[in-house]
Design a protein around this nucleic acid. Structure first.
Length: 477
RNA sequence: CGGGGUAUAGCGCAGUCUGGUAGCGCGUCUGCUUUGGGAGCAGAAGGUCGCAGGUUCGAAUCCUGCUGCCCCGACCA
């Protein structure tokens, strides 16, 4: 697998590398992990045995203990190498599904000009949640809490005709919202990473189709992240508009109450080859996923809910991981983003915006998938696929078997974290369980006496003794 | 933004009431023994006690002001 993050080689890169590099949008969100395998002795993984007292919810506790992140200020976090790997994997999946749906990635800045926000009227309206700053010339700037104004400005600078529509532009960029009370670690930080997409259509019917594309893309995205998500009708919130869904995942520690029909949990997610150019199919898919009762507490209607068969009523807690809006001409009108229609008129463009918080997802996935021993990563977002545990460091036979399997898996492109520290087995088991990678390979004298190693699945704790070759084959699948 | 806490070594804490020059556990470092579920022994390092004033012969401890962080509520991708 090409490594998007590697330094440029001094020789002419092979074609595949050059092509891949051309599609790498920004170095700091590059598509591939910097190095697929790692010796723990050379890694930076500051595992804590005790929980820092500021951490209240489970994802926050586990992320601190697993050395994934560090708090730098209230609601502001640094991602350490292990946490950053997970964040990158989430971003990659989000990006792939956005691209699949036809959205185009760009990258807008974090700092914006106040002028832009005065055009939409939101500079005053947004309130204290917006971080306002001024530069050396006393020009008023702000750290973007969202990007409707800027994307509208970009759009109107270039697009004049309905023939250039539909268009959907997105980026993955840090946002800052000066929450009154940041809490729950990454779940409600002030600085957070957001994928925000913006659609442009000539009329409402077109906008509906663009909305449906994102709806389907979101269903696929969350499923690939190992989550069960349920779209729920939502208030449109401060951004405005009248068509809006929140995507909620169920987790007992979630912050909002949700109510839905049980059948949602078994709905099949659209497959990867769904035709995004088939509006009828998209509409049918959205219709299906909005046919049954599902609502957050704000939109909850107890009377309707009570009409569901009792065994189909799910009342649970959930975490909002995505939110999609149609808001019509709310920004295009005041900002004069106009396009010519087929009959020669000029109309303000119809827009929607679509958000996913990858940094929140890191925490949300942990909330949805952990046990008493630590995190249980879904394979798609796990920082590594395999933890290789040397149970008797310094023992020639054990070291040899570990080194050989490590080299073998590395060659096969399997992401391995090799615990080669001079620690006792118990400490290595605890650390491996805590960081939650899907597979553990335990290599020690006891198994090697019979030519075997042990493969343990983190998710269910099941174990199996097998030859190193069989383990290698299994893990490379 | 209202209410309530808290700040002492990398992490978790005691010491503050009753002022006398800072301690415990874990972690870290060195050595030896150990090695299949967070090992044992011996030794060592590490703290302007959040910051600034004040009271006092003397302040982690008492007084005043400030700041950071956390929790509950209202608000939010």
């Amino acid at each position: 697998m090409p490594k998007g993050c590697e330094k440029f080689p001094t020789v002419v890169p092979p074609l595949s590398f050059a092509v891949r590099s051309a599609f790498t949008p920004a170095l700091f969100f590059c598509l591939d992990s910097p190095k697929s395998t790692m010796r723990l002795s050379r890694y930076f993984l500051p595992i804590l045995r005790e929980t820092p007292k500021e951490a209240e919810i489970v994802s926050h506790r586990l992320m601190l203990r697993a050395g994934m992140m560090r708090q730098e200020a209230a609601g502001i976090y640094a991602f350490l190498p292990l946490g950053f790997r997970v964040l990158q994997k989430i971003c990659r999946i989000v990006r792939e599904e956005q691209d699949r749906s036809g959205a185009l990635e760009l990258l807008m800045p974090t700092i914006q000009s106040a002028e832009l926000w005065r055009e939409s009227g939101r500079y005053e309206a947004y309130g204290k949640e917006m971080l306002r700053i001024s530069d050396r010339h006393e020009r008023e700037m702000l750290y973007g809490p969202t990007n409707e104004e800027m994307i509208t400005e970009i759009f109107r600078a270039y697009v004049r005709s309905y023939k250039d529509l539909p268009l959907n532009l997105y980026h993955i960029q840090w946002k800052f919202r000066d929450e009154v009370r940041p809490r729950f670690g990454l779940m409600r930080g002030r600085e957070f990473l957001m994928k925000d997409a913006y659609s442009f259509d000539v009329d409402q019917a077109g906008a509906r189709n663009s909305y449906n594309k994102m709806f389907v893309a979101y269903l696929r995205t969350f499923a690939r992240l190992g989550l069960k998500s349920i779209p729920m009708r939502a208030e449109s919130g401060p951004i405005g508009g009248d068509m809006s869904h929140e995507f909620i995942i169920l987790a007992s520690t979630g912050e909002s109450e949700v109510y839905c029909h049980k059948d949602y949990l078994d709905f099949a997610v659209p497959s990867a080859d769904i035709d995004f150019d088939d509006p009828a199919l998209l509409q049918a898919t959205v219709d299906k996923w909005t046919s049954l009762y599902a609502a957050t507490s704000e939109k909850h209607d107890p009377a309707s809910f009570a009409k569901l068969p009792p065994d189909k009523q799910v009342s649970a807690r959930g975490i909002e991981v995505g939110h999609i809006f149609y808001f019509g001409t709310k920004y295009s009108e005041p900002m004069k983003a106009l396009v010519a229609t087929g009959d020669g008129k000029e109309v303000p463009v119809h827009m929607g915006s679509y958000g996913i918080g990858p940094s929140r997802l890191v925490a949300a996935i942990i909330e949805a998938s952990h046990d008493d021993a630590g995190i249980v990563w879904p394979e798609a977002v796990a920082p590594f696929k395999v933890a290789l545990l040397n149970l008797k460091q310094g023992d020639a036979a054990t070291d040899g078997a570990c080194e050989q399997l490590y080299r073998d898996l590395t060659k096969k492109g399997v992401e391995v974290l090799y615990n080669d520290l001079d620690e006792r087995p118990g400490a290595k088991f605890a650390a491996a369980d805590l960081i939650g990678v899907p597979y553990q390979v335990l290599i020690g004298p006891r198994g090697l006496a019979e030519g075997k190693v042990e493969v343990k699945r983190r998710a269910d704790g099941s174990r199996e003794m097998m030859s190193p070759v069989a383990a290698s084959d299994l893990l490379a699948r």
